[in-house]
Amino acid sequence: MNEKHEQLIADYLSGELDDVGKTRLEELIASGEIDFMEFLEVEKLYEELGAIPTQKPSEKLSNRFYLMLEEEKKSIKPGWWKVFIDKVLLEVSNLTAPKLAYALVLLVIGGFIGSQINNDQSEIEQLSQEMQSMKEMMLVNMLEGSSAADRLKAVNISSEFSTVDLDAIHALLFTLNNDPSVNVRIQAVEALKRWGDDERVRRGLVRSISTQESPIVITELADTMIELELKASAPEFQKLLEERELDYSVQQKLESSIAVLM
């Protein structure tokens, strides 16, 4: 029997033979190239080997192994995080019941105070917003009032606003362009100057130049434009110089302002 045939039978015994191999094996047996009797004896013996009882190790083996494993674990230096966690766990386990209760009480109180501070903070913010809304409403209402003193108060209230408010801007610009009192209009310019970074305020101030008749308001506006570096106001002032008969002092003021702005 050649080695190829021996390999074929070995594959058959272990169950590793595919269908093509099985057909080939049958052909070889049928042709007598493989001794059928020998094949049967070996196959039978292979089956019988499976009936040999297996031996089991004793419990001692398991005990020895796990003892060795524990010793190996001890010999390995743990990482820093493991040391840290172990230390924390050890500290916690060392706490007596009263200490643990005390720590828990402190934790609860701390958490309560923290949440209260948080709540207080949010409540303050909410109140602050409500206050500003109320002041804005007051400002708009007071600017529409008949008393110049009230309207002045209203303009001054706007100085207390922490944030830019569109309604307040509109109301102040309306006051600047329409209020009969020079003092109120000057206060309106002062109030709007604080929000000089806002594009809507800047545009409103430039547009209001042509609507002003009072030399004091025009002079105030000229100073404000220089302060805010509003170059777009220069043509408006130039127009005033050309179209109106202004006081000499106002002309001088506007010419110097245009020179600075240009």
Binding site: E3, Q7, A10, D11, S14, E16, E41, V42, L45, Y46
Partner: peptide, 27 residues
Amino acid sequence: YKEIAEILDTTEGAIKVKMFRAMKELR
């Protein structure tokens, strides 16, 4: 057989031949 060949550092074919001859000898 392939795994046994790896363990014994030989070829799969050699293991198969040895297996068959071992079985014959055992018989």
